[in-house]
Design a protein around this nucleic acid. Structure first.
Lengths: 185, 185
DNA sequence: GAAAGCATGTAATTGGTTACATGATTGG
DNA sequence: CCAATCATGTAACCAATTACATGCTTTC
């Protein structure tokens, strides 16, 4: 079973946008793909190197030894579109520390810390939502003409909708716990 | 910065339930925690060993060399409840292959494969939803009396709500793409 | 002139999976 | 008696993070 390396395709994909250096690829992922992908420099640079070795990307460092300009090759484009069409095999399972803690919360004598957990979590979700909405409106005003824009907005919409669902669950859960405590008293 | 090992606490937490062996811990995670946690045998057994070394768990294999019965110690309980109260530092970022593919979908000439991706994904989400609802009703009928039950239902509710949000996003996105195609023709 | 950001990279380590190996027990 | 499930474990490997090291350029 050949294991597919998604990170490789993430980088390959970003080479089709205006990203040309390892640095800008990392930055792009940290800003525009941050709600469904992340990466470290320790992966970016080695991966770029292997992409060149495999003939999927080319590098131009004629001007400056310290600055490299990468671009995707025809073979690379082929490999990317090929991967894009491969069906997504399985739903991802996100490890969620909050849920893990909640799962064992009956071990705690007082629910006050569980409550606090939910409260701070919800606050963070609201912050995240705000960030998404800001990106959304900035894409809508500045990049609406680009052909990628529609798909970028779609992935953002996913982030917004699932975050909203989590926020709802958060406040709903706080209510439940409040009631649970009352009936046990 | 001491790195916390969540997997260790997952196992420690399960030792407070009726799980007593590495095998049953793995099984429990695969069934009841599967929407927010997963683990492999390659982690379970070594972790149990270190838990015993750290004095957080005890092992009893007097009856049978091949079967070991683990239990949590007082020190282990202390460490668990301590961890439960530590605030969750950051929202998790789930790597999502479907979103990664969608993000670069403008590279494809035809949107038919993007459509297919969304369709099969939505189908999988519906299957997942069904599974969650089955677990939900089985907890409600068989384990409602247990003190853990409430928290188990809460984590399940999270799964159900976020899955519903994803399903809605899926059909919504399919509509958008349909319209996008039409206006470009 | 200092700080922030641009820019590239490696080595050590961690967290985790996969494949492999073994064998007992239970139910049809 | 055979298949499924129960049960334990290791070694090789992979993906990824972290910490470290270096130096340039732009902006205040």
């Amino acid at each position: 079973m050949p294991k597919e390396n998604h990170t490789k395709y993430a980088i390959l994909g970003l080479l089709t946008t205006s990203c040309r250096s390892g640095y800008s690829i990392k930055k792009m992922i940290d800003t525009s793909l941050n709600h469904f992908w992340k990466i470290s420099y320790g992966q970016v640079y080695p991966t770029l190197k292997t992409l060149v070795q495999e003939g999927l990307a080319e590098v131009d460092n004629t001007n400056d030894l310290d600055k490299k300009e990468y671009s995707i090759t025809e073979k690379g484009k082929q490999e990317l579109t090929n991967w894009l069409q491969l069906p997504v095999e399985k739903l991802s399972v996100e490890k969620n520390e909050l849920l893990l803690k909640l799962f064992f919360s009956s071990q705690l004598e007082s629910q006050s810390s569980t409550f606090l957990q939910l409260e701070t979590y919800e606050k963070k979700l609201h912050e995240r939502l705000e960030v998404y909405r800001n990106i959304q409106s900035s894409i809508e005003t500045y990049s609406a003409h680009e052909q990628d824009a529609m798909y970028w907005l779609i992935t953002l919409d996913y982030g917004i909708k699932t975050t909203l669902a989590q926020i709802e669950w958060c406040s709903c859960t706080q209510e439940k716990i409040k009631k649970g405590v009352k009936t046990n008293e």
